[in-house]
Simulated assay, not measured.
Amino acid sequence: MFRPRRRSSTPAPEGEAEPRPRRPKTREEQREALLAYAFRALGARAITEAELRGKLERRSEDPELVEEVLRRVQELGYQNDAEVARAENKRRGVGEMRVRQTLRRRGLGADLIEETLQARDPEQEQQQATDLLTKRWPALSRKRDPRASAYAFLARRGFGSSVIWLAIREVAELFPPDDAEE
């Protein structure tokens, strides 16, 4: 089994060369390394400017270098907060409040969040809530208070109360309670 050699302060055994100390990286090398890291981070998933800035600041102590790398990835079109907001807004099965909360947590500005939420289709959100509840209703209907459980389920997903109550009414009509079971 291969085990990497640990660095220690003890001298190397006779016949082995001492490891050479690393030379400090030049500013250009630091920039290239930070840029490569930014591309790897952006390749994993779409991240906001605030998230990327945080990642880069943990890697570099030079704020000018961090800003330079951020500008470069934005110039090249690899990072765009509006695209991140649009993608989050298109997620299925989550309501407006969840989208708002997620975008705020990810560091987007209030203006962009409001603009994103204005593009949401209320009818589509209502339909998604109803569809989610239709799938879950058989399990929820076995609970002591199915409507309260359904409300809590959709509220955790970020749907507003008006959307939730309308979905509950629609689904309850589709699945009338069985009097024989009660």
Rank of each mutant, 00 (worst) to 15 (best):
V99N: 01
A129N: 04
A167D: 04
D131G: 08
G95N: 01
A85T: 03
P19A: 11
E18H: 04
G54C: 05
E115L: 07
R92E: 13
D81L: 00
A38Y: 05
M97H: 11
L76R: 13
R86D: 06
R71V: 01
R136G: 12
R40E: 12
E115A: 12
R5D: 11
T134W: 03
A152F: 13
R91Y: 08
G77E: 02
K90T: 07
K143N: 13
R3T: 14
L117P: 00
E64S: 13
T26W: 06
P19N: 08
N80T: 07
R105Q: 14
E96Y: 05
R100W: 14
G77D: 05
N89K: 12
V99Y: 01
A44N: 11
S162D: 14
F39E: 10
F159S: 10
F39P: 03
L35C: 00
I168Q: 10
R31E: 15
A167G: 04
S161G: 01
R58K: 14
E28I: 00
V94L: 01
Y78C: 05
R22V: 12
R7P: 07
T10S: 14
Y151M: 06
P4M: 05
L34I: 02
R91I: 10
Y37G: 08
Q124F: 12
A50W: 11
A82Q: 06
V84P: 05
P138F: 04
L140F: 02
A172I: 00
E68G: 11
Y78D: 09
R6D: 10
A87C: 03
V163W: 02
Q101I: 03
W165R: 13
E96K: 15
N80I: 07
E125R: 03
P13R: 08
V163G: 02
L65D: 00
E67H: 04
A82L: 04
D81V: 00
P63D: 11
R136Y: 10
A46Q: 13
N80R: 13
R86L: 05
Y151V: 04
T116L: 00
R86M: 03
S141H: 01
L140Y: 00
R100K: 15
R144P: 06
P19Q: 08
D179I: 09
K135N: 10
E170A: 11
S161L: 02
R147T: 11
G15H: 09
L112T: 00
T130C: 09
R98S: 08
M97A: 12
G15T: 12
A110S: 15
S162W: 09
Q101F: 10
R142K: 15
R3I: 13
L65R: 02
A87Y: 05
R136D: 12
R98N: 07
R40P: 04
P146V: 09
A46C: 06
P176I: 05
E18F: 02
I47D: 02
R7I: 07
G95V: 02
A110T: 14
E170S: 05
R106L: 06
I47R: 12
I113Q: 04
E173L: 13
G160V: 07
P11W: 08
T130F: 09
R23K: 14
A41Y: 12
M97D: 13
G107I: 00
E64V: 11
R5G: 11
K25M: 14
A139R: 15
K25F: 11
E75N: 10
K25R: 13
G43N: 04
G109A: 07
V99L: 02
S161R: 02
L132A: 05
R104S: 11
R157D: 03
P177N: 06
L70G: 12
V99P: 02
E57W: 00
